[in-house]
Design a protein around this nucleic acid. Structure first.
Lengths: 206, 206
DNA sequence: TCTTTTTTAGCACACATGTTTCAGCAATGT
DNA sequence: ACATTGCTGAAACATGTGTGCTAAAAAAGA
């Protein structure tokens, strides 16, 4: 028996190299050779863990999606476990804490957001990535939907908006903010994104 | 003197071929050879009108941006020329008419939106496209900003929100809706996008 | 008809990519 | 010690890419 390397760890290590290449030079530069060099591995080693480039890309896509959504889900369960907030300000704070996990507010999440965008766009024409994109949609829909329910069921909202409609609009705000913060960080700083999100949430209250 | 072909017309024709290739197969497939084939031209012919691939791409990017923003600007000037709307519903109609030009509601604008997204994302790592992306940002910012001013100056809005902040949020809604309608047309149909936009505008009114 | 100039077409080169193949290494169990 | 087997590294191949260069074609004026 040779050196035993945990295959999953190795695959995630390669995926991290993919993320770095995409964040710095874009998805088009995420070739097997560039990724291998970034991971300090030989081309053959990368191919030992991934039969295809397609398989590598789908794996990296899914890992990235899960990292984002798992962080948001953790915060969400904190919110749902804790006592119902009494004041409006407290409610906004709790919801914002969850949704901010979906915004690129630091270097780490900025990189993740870039990778996310590139993969989502690529999935439009790449059949191999289509399934992963569908799962990603469902995941963010679930997170945002549950936050909206928390918000609307709190008894602090004005009017009686449709949850599905408001989830759709909130997702649009989040996606749009992410897009701008990723592509135009000079004009859309983290604080600005945070503030815009909070202002949007506050419009639900009387 | 040989056959005189209007150089600008020809360049736009090649740009149209670029748009078709991107819409159908993505930016990565927009090679000179694929574009030439799509335009029914020889590789040499394309290269006669564009020295570089970089020049072609920047030209196509700018043509696409201008087409989108010119349509929106036309509608916007209609709005600003016409009499001030008296009722809230009429105001929302007018503003929505302008902003809907920025959403992918038919096949034509859907293609434009796809091309727009691909170029914006590519501009993040491609220095040659950076300038065009900046101009695009300014253009949409101008359109949306003027619509927001029309809205807030109508005397029909509740509260006194900051125009810049609300423009930022509205741009996020538009970008997010575009993104979803382009990437997930099955879940986000044109009517749904239109409705979400109108609902957002209505939240400004009492 | 001949000339001139735009336009088209094609070849060739250097380079990057995904993939296949195979030889060598290195560590672990016997 | 030694054989097994996961792992690494490298070379080779086919394909696609941008670009430079050159020659043919085509059309309008002389």
């Amino acid at each position: 028996m040779p050196k035993i390397v945990d295959a999953n760890d190795r695959r995630e290590l390669v995926a991290d190299a993919v993320f770095q290449v995409i964040a710095e030079r874009g998805l088009t530069q995420a070739s097997l050779r560039n990724v291998a060099q970034q991971a300090d591995l030989a081309l053959g080693s990368v191919r030992h863990y991934f039969d295809n480039q397609a398989e590598l890309m789908e794996f990296a896509f899914r890992v990235n999606s899960e990292r984002i959504h798992l962080r948001a889900l953790d915060k969400l369960e904190e919110l749902e476990q804790s006592a119902l907030p009494a004041t409006a300000a407290e409610l906004v704070d709790k919801c914002a804490a969850v949704l901010e996990e979906l915004l690129p507010l630091d270097d780490q999440s900025r990189g993740e957001a870039v990778v996310h965008m590139e993969f989502m766009l690529a999935a439009r024409t790449d059949q191999g990535l289509h399934g992963a994109a569908q799962d990603d949609y469902r995941a963010t829909g679930a997170v945002v939907g549950r936050v909206v329910l928390q918000l609307l069921d709190s008894g602090l909202v004005a009017g009686s908006p449709e949850p599905v409609d408001e989830a759709e609009r909130l997702i649009a705000v989040l996606d749009g903010l992410s897009l701008r913060m990723v592509l135009q960080p000079a004009w859309s700083a983290p604080e600005q994104g945070r503030n815009t999100l909070r202002r949007h949430l506050e419009t639900f209250l009387a």
